[in-house]
């Protein structure tokens, strides 16, 4: 990735940015985040199909926010989360330099085959960036075509009792490490609801009650915001299929509010607005 290293060195040398967040290789088949502050570190920068991390998540951190300007290496999917941060006024556009990478696909979290999220990707070519690197990739899905999540089908086909049993089993492994929250680019609250204790809305014990409430609130706070980057599920040490919850709400946002998050920074997320004619079949 000569282009990337060159651009990074330019940005660092000219002092245009104080910090550049990109990827470095991690073993033969892997990549991990790299914080670049000098040109020597920039030499280590790479970009390939193993670059799974959504680096936009670091932009929510207080020490990164405090810097004058930060550059981030981002794929189209990651940029969708940046768009959400913009529309929620969490970052200033001028303070971030987006190095958009064209991307055909990344590997699945276990390193075998194409990542499932890439099959529904509409932004193989970054839709918002200060510079785009890499050869253009043909888009496979039209922008206005609703996304269909294959994984959800099985869950939707279950009875209510089966779904209950399924989730109780899955969530029993939750150890409440909050990796899902910390890795999420859109979980940016300075104080998470789970860290409040007067009143204590969510049991902090990793018992069935606490785990259920925590996972309800995590998914609900991402309703209409989640951009399907899949980081929560990937980082979960307990292998809980968290994306099923997020995708279910994404589907609902599409069906009910014709909304997909992370494409247009000017449009309003669905839970910050309404239409008078919104569907209310479920209300008596």
């Amino acid at each position: 990735m000569q282009e990337l290293v060159k651009k990074a060195k330019e940005l660092i040398e000219s002092k245009e940015v104080d910090l550049l967040i990109g990827y470095q290789s991690d073993g033969e088949k892997g990549a991990k985040p790299l914080f670049v502050k000098n040109t020597q570190q920039a030499e280590k920068l790479i970009f390939n199909q193993y670059c799974l991390n959504n680096l936009v998540t670091y932009l929510k951190r207080p020490d990164v926010k405090a810097l004058k300007k930060v550059a981030v290496v981002a794929k189209g999917c990651d940029i969708r989360s940046f768009v959400m941060l913009l529309s929620e006024n969490q970052v200033s556009r001028d303070a971030i330099f987006i190095i958009g990478m064209t991307c055909d696909h990344v590997v699945s979290p276990d390193g075998t085959g194409e990542n499932e999220k890439c099959t529904t990707c509409k932004v193989h070519n970054p839709h918002l960036a200060d510079v785009v690197l890499g050869a253009p990739v043909p888009e496979k899905i039209a922008k206005d075509k609703p996304v269909h999540y294959a994984q959800l089908e099985k869950l939707n086909a279950m009875s209510q009792e089966e779904r209950w049993a399924f989730w109780q089993e899955e969530l029993s492994r939750c150890i409440r490490c909050y990796a899902c929250r910390q890795a999420c680019p859109l979980c940016y609250c300075e104080r998470c609801i789970v860290d409040f204790n007067t009143p204590q809305w969510i049991d902090t014990r990793s018992n069935p009650r606490g785990n259920f409430a925590w996972n309800i609130v995590r998914a609900l706070h991402l309703a209409g915001r989640c951009i399907n980057c899949g980081e929560c599920e990937r980082v979960c040490p307990a292998n809980i299929p968290l994306m099923l919850l997020n995708q279910s709400l994404q589907e609902e946002a599409q069906e009910k509010f014709a909304w997909e998050a992370g494409y247009d920074p000017e449009s309003q997320p669905p839970l910050t607005t309404f239409r008078k004619e919104d569907d209310e079949d479920f209300i008596r």
């Binding site: 279910s248 709400l249 839970l271 309404f274 239409r275 919104d278 209310e280």
Partner: peptide
């Protein structure tokens, strides 16, 4: 109106969770 959107999402989530 805002509540209606919130409840739409909550109802779907609860349904998904069984």
């Amino acid at each position: 109106y805002n509540a209606r959107r919130k409840f739409t999402m909550m109802k779907r989530l609860l349904d998904t969770l069984g």
